[in-house]
Amino acid sequence: MKKDRLSAAVWDHHQIEDYFFSSISQMSQHISESVRAYVTGVETNSLNFLLVIDVNEQTAGDLQRGIRLLEEKTYVPFAIVAVEPDSQILAVIQQTGFVLDADSITTAMQLDLVDWQMHNVSVMEYDVRCVDLCLDDWAIPIESAFETDDAISEQYQKCHQAALDAGKNLQHYTLYIDELPVCSLTLSRLNNFVRLDDISTVMGKQRRGYAFALINHVLNKAKQDSATACYLDASRDGNGLYRRIGFKPLFEYQGLSRK
Score class of each variant (00 low, 15 high):
I80P: 03
I80M: 06
V81D: 09
A82P: 08
V83Q: 13
D86N: 14
Q88W: 01
Q88S: 10
Q94I: 08
Q94G: 14
G97H: 09
A102D: 15
A102Q: 15
I105G: 04
T107K: 04
T107R: 03
A108Y: 05
M109H: 09
D112T: 00
V114G: 00
Q117A: 10
M118C: 09
H119S: 13
V121D: 09
V123N: 04
M124G: 14
E125I: 00
V128L: 05
V128Y: 03
R129L: 07
R129G: 02
C130W: 00
V131W: 04
D132C: 14
L133Q: 13
C134R: 15
L135T: 03
L135D: 08
D136C: 04
I140T: 11
E143V: 07
E143S: 10
S144I: 09
S144G: 06
A145H: 13
A145C: 10
E147D: 08
D149P: 09
A151H: 13
A151M: 11
A151P: 01
E154A: 13
Q155G: 01
Q155I: 00
Y156D: 09
C159E: 06
A163H: 02
K168W: 02
Y173L: 03
Y173K: 02
T174H: 09
L175Q: 03
L175T: 00
Y176R: 03
I177F: 00
I177S: 01
D178L: 02
C183T: 10
L185A: 07
T186Q: 13
R189A: 13
R189K: 15
R189I: 11
L190R: 11
L190Y: 10
N191P: 07
N192C: 07
F193D: 14
R195H: 10
L196W: 06
L196D: 07
D197Q: 13
D198F: 10
I199F: 02
T201W: 01
V202L: 12
M203Y: 07
M203P: 06
M203T: 00
G204F: 01
K205V: 01
Q206M: 08
Q206A: 04
R208P: 02
Y210G: 05
Y210V: 01
L214N: 00
N216F: 03
H217C: 02
H217G: 00
V218H: 02
L219M: 07
